[in-house]
Design a binder for these strands. Sequence first.
DNA 1: CTGTATCCTAGCCGATACTG
DNA 2: CAGTATCGGCTAGGATACAG
Lengths: 120, 120
Amino acid sequence: MEKMENRCPVETTLSLINGKWKLLILKELSQGPVRYNQLKESIPAISTKVLTQQLREMESDGMIIREVFPEIPPHVEYSLSEMGVSIFKIFAEIRRWGLEDDKRNNPKCSDCQSCRPYHL
Amino acid sequence: MEKMENRCPVETTLSLINGKWKLLILKELSQGPVRYNQLKESIPAISTKVLTQQLREMESDGMIIREVFPEIPPHVEYSLSEMGVSIFKIFAEIRRWGLEDDKRNNPKCSDCQSCRPYHL
DNA sequence: CTGTATCCTAGCCGATACTG
DNA sequence: CAGTATCGGCTAGGATACAG
């Protein structure tokens, strides 16, 4: 799913969250603004490189907002944009579907490796 | 998003359609049962290997049904299962979201390379 | 007609070290 | 604290040839 080549709203929408960690990031930010290292701690398995990468993509997609406080030491806060909130709600819908459907025997979200405290 | 390791309904759901062509296949099947070569012709850009691969995955995920008619030459029909229909509807919802949101300047789905006659 | 079997590539992702 | 820079592995997907 390349970003600029597909013209399908569904694929475009899906490409917005198709990084390996974007849903998780979305979830973390849904609690309110979070700093870089807080994110890193909430999602220990992600590397700094990939975390930054995904954050940059999400920012340029307009899903999240990156606010820099000109202090020393550096201080950066990430938060959901309005669009970030609305797409997050969509995936709450999907979650509902995923849970409803017993046919697929979905184990309830209990111990995603980096997703312990909350549920998507 | 590995299939058997994640426990998140959202990720599980997304993994169901995270092949590059699965949405397209879903769409083709939504019109009714289709034979292998019909699919290949509707989606010319896909290779036989990948087409078969994705079909097999979708089948084992319970989204589609593969029916073999014991004839010569071989005759195989693919169709949506009940679950396939229901997930397809979800992504119709997403499409609606994608189209509503002008902020992302979604070009209307007009000329996906292999997605001409219908819209997702 | 409905697929396998090979071989190959691009891009995602990770580990680790380093920086303003 | 909030990131770059580098190197390198893995795997989904693609091209092509062949088979029952």
